[in-house]
Amino acid sequence: MAFFGVRLTDDFAARFDAFASSKGGRSVLLRRLMAEAMTAGGLEPAPDGPGPARGQSDKLTLRLKADDRAALDSASGAAGMRRTEWALACLRGRLFRKPQFNAGQALALVEARQELARISTNLRELVRAVRDGDLAADAVSDELAKVEAFRREVRDQLDGVRAAIDGAGDYWEAA
């Protein structure tokens, strides 16, 4: 879906929004005005509709001094995030007390989850084989060694996940 952006003075925008609120809102009114202009110009406008919803959000604008902007650029760059992503993660981490992850951290957690799922499948197959008696008596000790290796691997993965979540939580907490 296409997006048209228009720069307006704050006063004009506020007055237009006040007017548009009684007409269904800014987007509805703008689509209607555009359709009327196309019809007046002899063109067939597309059917009116809001298009796919993107979720409701509000814009927050910050004015930063040069040293604040440089610090923000440095912190967001070090975290592997864009400025807006970093600032939003900072707000969410502080407001909702939930860890926030950059793309690399999120990918690492997904990989850990996939590894744990693989281990779970292997353990399930091993338990089934032992339960059904598909293993010879001498093979059971070998399989028990595999179970111990799986246990250590699961513990290491869980420790990594815990460290990632704790680290993200600590990072976004206020100093």
Rank of each mutant, 00 (worst) to 15 (best):
Ser76Phe: 01
Asp134Glu: 15
Arg69Ile: 02
Thr61Arg: 09
Asn102Phe: 00
Leu116Pro: 04
Leu43Pro: 00
Leu95Ala: 14
Met81Lys: 01
Ser120Lys: 13
Arg128Asn: 11
Pro50Thr: 11
Asp58Cys: 08
Leu62Trp: 11
Leu30Trp: 07
Arg92Ala: 06
Gly41Asp: 14
Glu44Asn: 09
Pro47Glu: 14
Arg128Trp: 02
Arg63His: 13
Ser74Trp: 08
Arg26His: 13
Cys90Val: 12
Gln114His: 12
Arg26Thr: 13
Gly80Lys: 02
Asn122Glu: 15
Leu109Ser: 02
Leu135Val: 06
Gly93Tyr: 04
Gly77Ala: 03
Glu36Pro: 01
Leu64Cys: 06
Arg82Lys: 09
Lys98Leu: 06
Ala89Asn: 15
Glu125Asn: 14
Ala71Val: 02
Glu125Lys: 12
Glu125Ser: 12
Glu125Trp: 08
Ser27Lys: 03
Gly104Cys: 00
Lys59Ala: 13
Glu44His: 05
Ala89Tyr: 10
Arg69Gly: 02
Asp48Val: 10
Asp67Gly: 03
Ala87Ile: 12
Ala117Met: 11
Val127Met: 07
Gly41Glu: 14
Leu95Gln: 05
Asp58Ala: 15
Arg124Ala: 13
Ala137Tyr: 07
Leu62Arg: 06
Gly49Leu: 04
Val110Cys: 03
Thr121His: 15
Gln100Asp: 01
Val28Phe: 07
Glu44Tyr: 01
Leu95Arg: 09
Ala137Leu: 12
Gln100Lys: 01
Val130Arg: 11
Lys65Thr: 15
Leu72Tyr: 04
Ala112Pro: 00
Glu44Phe: 01
Ala108Trp: 04
Gly104His: 07
Gly49Cys: 07
